[in-house]
Amino acid sequence: MPISSRTSAPGLVIGAVAGLFAGTLVLAGGAPPGWAAVTGLMLALPLAALGAGCSALREHGVLRGGAFAPVALYWVIAFPVARLVQDVGTRLVLDERFDWPPQPLAFLAYQALISVGFAIGFVWVHERLLPRGAPR
Score class of each variant (00 low, 15 high):
Tyr74Cys: 06
Ile120Ser: 06
Pro2Gln: 04
Ala44Ile: 04
Gly66Thr: 07
Gly65Phe: 10
Leu84Ser: 03
Ser4Ala: 08
Met42His: 03
Leu43Tyr: 10
Glu96Cys: 06
Arg136Met: 00
Val71His: 07
Arg128Lys: 15
Phe21Asn: 03
Ala48Tyr: 01
Val76Pro: 11
Ala72Thr: 11
Gly40Ala: 09
Ala106Gln: 00
Ala22Gly: 07
Val17Gly: 01
Phe107Ala: 01
Asp87Tyr: 15
Ala9Lys: 09
Arg6Lys: 14
Leu20Trp: 13
Ala18Lys: 02
Gln103Pro: 01
Val85His: 00
Val93Tyr: 12
Leu27Thr: 02
Pro2Tyr: 06
Ala78Tyr: 01
Ala52Cys: 09
Tyr110Leu: 13
Leu57Tyr: 07
Gly121Gln: 05
Gly133Ile: 10
Leu57Glu: 12
Ala16Asp: 06
Ala134Asp: 14
Gly11Leu: 00
Gly40Leu: 08
Ser5Asn: 01
Pro131Lys: 14
Val81Phe: 12
Ala56Lys: 02
Gly53Ser: 10
Leu113Pro: 00
Ala112Asp: 10
Thr7Ile: 01
Val76Ile: 14
Leu12Ile: 14
Gln86Pro: 05
Gln111Gly: 05
Ala37Ser: 05
Gln86Met: 15
Leu27Val: 05
Ala119Pro: 09
Gly15Cys: 04
Leu43Gly: 02
Leu113Thr: 05
Ala56Glu: 02
His126Glu: 14
Gly23Thr: 06
Pro32Asp: 14
Trp35His: 13
Arg6Phe: 09
Gly133Asn: 09
Ala9Gln: 10
Leu27Gly: 12
Leu130Cys: 12
Ile120Arg: 08
Ala31Met: 14
Asp99Pro: 01
Arg64Thr: 13
Pro33Asn: 12
Ile120Glu: 05
Gly53His: 08
Leu41Tyr: 04
Glu59Leu: 01
Pro102Met: 04
Val85Ala: 15
Val38Leu: 06
Leu108Gly: 00
Leu41Arg: 04
Ala134Cys: 07
Val76Asn: 07
Ile77His: 02
Gln86Gly: 02
Val26Thr: 15
Arg132Asn: 11
Gly30Pro: 06
Pro2Phe: 02
Ile14Tyr: 03
Leu129Met: 15
Ser55Val: 03
Leu57Trp: 07
Ser8Val: 10
Gly40Tyr: 03
Val76Leu: 15
Pro33Arg: 09
Ala82Cys: 10
Leu43Ala: 10
Ala106Arg: 05
Thr90Met: 14
Pro135Arg: 14
Ser8Cys: 11
Trp100Pro: 03
Leu25Arg: 14
Phe98Tyr: 13
Arg128Ile: 11
Leu105Asn: 00
Pro80Lys: 06
Pro10Cys: 08
Val93Trp: 10
Met42Pro: 01
Gly117Cys: 04
His60Asp: 12
Val123Pro: 01
Val17Trp: 08
Phe122Glu: 04
Gly29Asp: 11
Trp124Phe: 14
Gly19Val: 09
Trp124Ile: 02
Phe68Trp: 13
Arg91Ser: 13
Ala109Cys: 05
Val76Gln: 10
Tyr74Arg: 02
Glu127Gly: 14
Leu47Ala: 11
Ser115Met: 04
Asp95Ser: 15
Gly53Lys: 08
Ala106Val: 02
Val116Glu: 02
Pro131His: 13
Ile14Lys: 03
Phe68Arg: 11
Val38Asp: 11
